[in-house]
Amino acid sequence: MNRQKPLTVISGFSENGKRELMKSYQENRQNHVKIIRFHPKAMKLTLNGEDPFPVTSFIGEAIHHVEATTEEDLMSLLAKEHQNRSTDEILLDVSPFSSIDSLLEQFTSDRRWFIASHVHVLDAKAFWFSYFSEHEIITADQDFTQTLGEALILQLELADTLCLYHQDGLSSERLGELTAFLRVLQPRALLCDLHEAIQRCQKGHTTFDKNGYASLYVEQRNLVASRQHVKVIHNYGVDTFFYQSSQPVGIHQLERFFEHLPNDIFRMKGRCYNPQTGELHSISQVGAHIQVDTTTTDLMENRDVQTELLFIGFELDRDALSRLLHECLQPNHDRIAFG
């Protein structure tokens, strides 16, 4: 039986940063590294004419030996390279248009490979432009749509290493804001510059945790809750707020709350359970876009909590948020909440 081969996943919107990382990685490894680029043809970019984000900053030709345009083609290529005795390891360059969560799920269940790391390369200068971008990624049949910011966050939150590129283009204040925000978004990931990422790859450190994403929300929630009444120094205005209630919210009241969401909230996620309908609403917000997925279940994992929402932003007005969320609680329940 052939041995497992290491697979390093590299995602992000910075083609220049990814290119430099992969080139240095390849040059400093004594074994043979094969670079595969995954750029799904089913995903298309629709441009919003009013959006100032320069999409040319991440659309370019990255270095690679071979390219796959469908998941089926990619899996066939990987199976071929696993049998190829001249290939010792794989660098997989995942385009910003990819559904990386489904890829990682397949990789972790395939015993032929072990994921050495998932490195997400961030262009420090372009981060906020892409995060709040109104450009959209859609599938060919238009049954799936997400903004560039939503795609960026999904890739970022799945990564175990966040590599910052173009840091020199920011003031210390702007860089401090960005790094403080990233540390709350992904508290378990290593945050480093390009040089540190290259050194880490050269040493062959394995950092990927296949169960990491599943527990990320719980870790974020616990981290924010522990800091709720503690003043965090050097946070550059980045603020967090965790709201919990033993009572359910009315989904229509919550929708109205979303319509008037304060601009200083950059990221929100949470879960709201309605015991009367048995519906669990999982909520994710990036910038101006909010997604609510509804499933049917018996209970949330915590019997004493029906509603919990995690907010990340700048200098949040916690009292105002608490008042607005209290008003969303179902009127036929006692209003018991802690925030």
Rank of each mutant, 00 (worst) to 15 (best):
E50H: 03
K41H: 08
S24G: 10
A42W: 02
K41Y: 14
M22D: 10
K18H: 07
P54H: 02
N48R: 01
P52K: 00
Q26S: 12
F38S: 01
A42S: 14
N28P: 06
N31P: 03
I36A: 05
H32T: 04
I35S: 10
I35Q: 09
G17M: 09
D51A: 00
E50K: 13
Q30Y: 11
P52F: 07
S24T: 08
E50I: 07
M43K: 04
A42V: 09
F53K: 00
E27Y: 01
E27A: 08
Q30V: 03
T56L: 10
E15S: 02
L21R: 00
N28I: 09
L45K: 04
V55P: 13
V55E: 12
M22E: 13
E27F: 09
K41Q: 07
K44E: 15
E20K: 05
F38L: 10
G17I: 02
S57R: 09
Q26M: 15
K18R: 13
N48H: 14
T46G: 01
F53L: 00
M43F: 12
F38T: 06
K34V: 05
N16M: 07
T46R: 15
P54I: 01
K18G: 14
D51Q: 02
N28C: 13
N31H: 10
N16Y: 03
V55L: 15
K34G: 00
T56M: 10
G49Q: 12
R19I: 01
S57P: 00
N16G: 05
M22G: 14
R29V: 06
I35R: 09
M43T: 11
T46Q: 13
N48C: 15
N48K: 05
V55R: 11
G49A: 08
F58G: 07
I36H: 02
K41D: 03
K18Q: 06
Y25P: 01
T46L: 11
N28S: 11
V55S: 12
P54D: 14
S24K: 10
N28F: 06
H32K: 06
H32L: 02
R37I: 10
E50A: 13
Q30D: 12
P40D: 09
Q30N: 08
Q26R: 14
R37A: 12
T56F: 10
N48L: 02
R37P: 02
